[in-house]
Computed example of a mutant assay.
Amino acid sequence: MGTTGALGATMMVAEAIMSGMDKARNKFDELTGKAKQKYGEATGNASVEARGRRRRVGGNLRQAGQKIKDAFKR
């Protein structure tokens, strides 16, 4: 029984770490996407602007999904 409790606690810590890493990656994607989008706008490069927009939106969507997942964990 003690092993199961320790294993469960270890899994919870691992999930918390991964959750934090996922959140950081999502925020990074949002911010780099925003920068790419602005760069594309400033240079008139529609391709870079579109890639930046996709990355920003993807990061935002993953952040929203993470928030929903976190709400169900409680």
Rank of each mutant, 00 (worst) to 15 (best):
A9T: 09
M12I: 06
G59V: 00
F28V: 10
R51Y: 06
E49N: 03
A24R: 15
R25E: 09
K34S: 13
S19Q: 07
A50P: 00
A50N: 08
N45A: 07
A42H: 06
N60C: 06
E15T: 06
S47F: 10
V13E: 06
A50C: 04
R62Q: 08
T43E: 13
K36P: 02
A9V: 05
A16T: 15
M11C: 06
R53N: 04
L7K: 14
K38G: 01
D22P: 00
G8I: 11
K36T: 01
L61E: 10
E41F: 01
R55Q: 09
A14S: 15
K34A: 14
A16G: 07
R51L: 14
T32R: 06
K36D: 03
A14G: 05
A14V: 10
L31W: 06
N45H: 05
V48M: 08
G44Y: 05
A6L: 15
K36N: 04
R51H: 07
G40I: 03
G20I: 00
M11T: 13
T43W: 04
R54M: 12
T10L: 13
M18F: 03
N60W: 03
N26G: 04
G5S: 14
N45R: 04
M11E: 09
D22C: 03
K27Y: 09
R25S: 07
D29K: 05
L31M: 14
G44T: 05
A42S: 12
L7I: 15
M21E: 10
T10N: 08
N45W: 02
E15D: 12
E15L: 13
R62V: 04
N26P: 01
G44M: 04
R25T: 08
N45K: 03
K36A: 00
A46I: 04
R25Y: 08
N60M: 12
Q37G: 00
A9L: 13
L31E: 13
R51M: 10
D22W: 03
N60A: 11
K34W: 04
N26D: 13
K36R: 06
G33R: 00
V48E: 02
G33Q: 00
R25L: 12
G8K: 12
T10P: 01
G8V: 10
R62M: 11
G5C: 09
L61R: 09
S19F: 06
M12T: 11
A9F: 09
E30G: 01
K38R: 14
D22Y: 02
M12K: 11
L31V: 15
G59F: 01
